[in-house]
């Protein structure tokens, strides 16, 4: 078990390094320079060259990469080229926004999706068919379109929820919930559909398995067969899908944050991308990769807890 965790941790470190390297190289492949971004359109070539030299842009590539890594180890992501703000402080204040939406949407997708999927598998018939058709369509709908539709229906027409804006949890938990409700809902529709599909397929397969027949033959009550035994075996692929969902929601939060005007990581990456703010861009990549890697780590542990075979390996 310890070796297992160590292996996964080593892999996580390598992944973060690769992400940093890729974004670092991308930055240097660009034809603009940090000096030009920092000084804006009005700067002369000489000013820009001087600024680049000050920022260390002219140093050898490996030295710059080494410097950045050394900075990273001290948890220092540098400062913004645009307004000079401290990037790690900025991202630290944005992380909770993105994380709370991604976590809530993943949990809700999991609960709703598993309920629908298990119902489809256990009941079958017309209801099962309706669920599988419905989820097939729902998972293909563009999140931002669903989001705009939800704003129109729930916010403008029904007046139930605020359309945009974010209230921190610490300010007012009730209004925080209201402010994240629409984005979470928009993300959950597609997410729950994918989970429903996976859990229905997985549950159907398990319910047809030989060990389920053994349980029936020992007179085990049907609810116990379904919800203790079958669901536990069926949960392994569902957990994997939930993890992928979380990663996709976290990375894909940029669109939903833009739509609902939420001050999260996605918004920061959009701003950095459109302004050429290299340090901020690399910083977002680093934070996002670390989150993804941590979630993958957690997933491996959950899978190991569910599946004794993985545990032994």
């Amino acid at each position: 078990m310890l070796a297992f965790v160590a292996r996964r941790l080593a892999f996580a470190v390598v992944t973060v390094l690769v992400a940093v390297l890729i974004s670092f190289l991308l930055v240097h492949a660009s034809d603009t320079t940090p000096g030009a971004v920092r000084l804006g359109a009005g700067a002369t070539a000489a000013d820009i060259a001087a600024e680049n030299a000050r920022l260390g842009w002219d140093d050898p590539l490996w030295q710059q990469f080494g410097d950045y890594l050394a900075q990273l180890v001290r948890l220092d992501l540098g400062t913004s080229l645009i307004d000079g703000r401290d990037i790690e402080a900025d991202l630290a204040s944005r992380l909770p926004v993105t994380a709370s939406i991604a976590v809530l949407a993943t949990l809700l997708s999991g609960v709703v999706g598993v309920l629908l999927g298990v119902t489809a598998a256990v009941r079958g018939g017309r209801l099962g068919k309706a669920i599988s058709t419905g989820s097939g369509i729902a998972l293909s709908l563009p999140q931002f379109w669903v989001g705009v539709l939800l704003v129109y229906v729930l916010s403008l027409q029904a007046g139930l929820l605020p359309a945009t804006g974010y209230v921190p949890f610490s300010t007012d938990p009730g209004r925080w919930l209201q402010s994240v409700a629409l984005p979470v809902l928009a993300l959950t529709i597609g997410g729950a559909a994918i989970v429903a599909r996976t859990s229905a397929a997985s549950m159907r397969e398990v319910l047809g398995a030989e060990h389920i027949r053994t349980l029936r033959a020992t007179g085990t009550p049907e609810w116990r067969i379904r919800y203790v035994h079958a669901l536990r075996s069926a949960a392994v692929p569902v957990v994997a899908v939930l993890g992928i969902q979380f990663i996709a929601l976290f990375g894909g939060s940029v669109i939903i944050e833009n739509l609902f005007a939420l001050p999260g990581l996605g918004q920061a990456s959009q701003a950095a991308a459109s302004s050429g703010d290299f340090p901020a861009l690399v910083g977002v990549v680093v934070v996002a990769t670390v989150v993804v890697v941590l979630v993958n780590l957690l997933l491996d542990l959950v899978t190991a807890a569910l599946d004794p075979k993985v545990r032994a390996a």
């Binding site: 992944t15 890729i22 990375g251 940029v254 991308a273 302004s275 050429g276 996002a288 990769t289 993804v292």
Partner: peptide, 14 residues
């Protein structure tokens, strides 16, 4: 394991 959307935005930024 790389965050695809963020990386794509980085590519666009560059």
């Amino acid at each position: 394991a790389l965050p695809a959307t963020v990386l794509l935005l980085a590519v666009i930024g560059i």
